[in-house]
Write a protein that binds this DNA or RNA. Sequence first.
DNA 1: CTTAAAACCTAGTAAACCGATAGGATTATA
DNA 2: TATAATCCTATCGGTTTACTAGGTTTTAAG
Lengths: 137, 137
Amino acid sequence: MLSKKTKYGIKALTYIARKDEKLPVQASEISESENISQKFLESIMLELRKSGFLGSKKGKGGGYYLIKKPSEIKMTAVIRVLEGPIAMVPCVSLNYYEKCDDCPDEDACSVHKLMIQVRDASLNVLGENTLADIAFR
Amino acid sequence: MLSKKTKYGIKALTYIARKDEKLPVQASEISESENISQKFLESIMLELRKSGFLGSKKGKGGGYYLIKKPSEIKMTAVIRVLEGPIAMVPCVSLNYYEKCDDCPDEDACSVHKLMIQVRDASLNVLGENTLADIAFR
DNA sequence: CTTAAAACCTAGTAAACCGATAGGATTATA
DNA sequence: TATAATCCTATCGGTTTACTAGGTTTTAAG
């Protein structure tokens, strides 16, 4: 299941992308428009800034803006930052690999075999979709 | 992330499938061989029986056995029983649909759009794989 | 210079979920 | 009758989740 954090984060990025003005967008505006708890959203925006998706401007008239073009933001990257691994099991994760402490032999493991396929399928979809794709198409 | 319950459940089914003998397999045997807490596994086996994947025989010499042939057990079905919805968001789930309480318009929602694609990709993989595929191939 | 509006930061918290454990009751075999 | 297995219910510690509280800092505008 996708956490609300990730869901809200993607919605916020989408919201900013769809506003074609160059002015920064306030978290309060997004929170109202998208029905997201403001304080919670603030922490998410902060994370998105720290991970390089957003820039920010403090003070009156401040807000957040995209650092890259929507077409250059892959959804794999967004989800990895907000949600963590895309794989459903650590032992098939490319970026967060971890060996299972049960399971002596990964190659013999049926779960491993299956989850590699699921991972590849998901990776394929998320890698092909950019923020532009889901915001505008 | 896949829960241990689901992971253990799939491993247990695989174990039984790979034993070609007709005799029922004990939970204790599986728990030892696959390094799974016995009591925890017991509860999983029970669930797999109640949902129609396994039959059981009580008492001495008892155990669990597959009710259908491995090639007839789709992984979608197994995962839906043990893990719940395959979709990452309730609003794109086929079997466990739920409307988001934020989000007035699903068609305009970028998360919705993306997660439909992820769901279809996963569904495709899990629907094509049977227990036989992951146990023997 | 003051005020308001915004991001930024730290901490806490209620509820849910997870993985496991405890302790048996029931049933079947030998 | 003893033993071995499933079956059942309850509980529990730990972690995560989704959020809330309560500020501080920075900036722009009046």
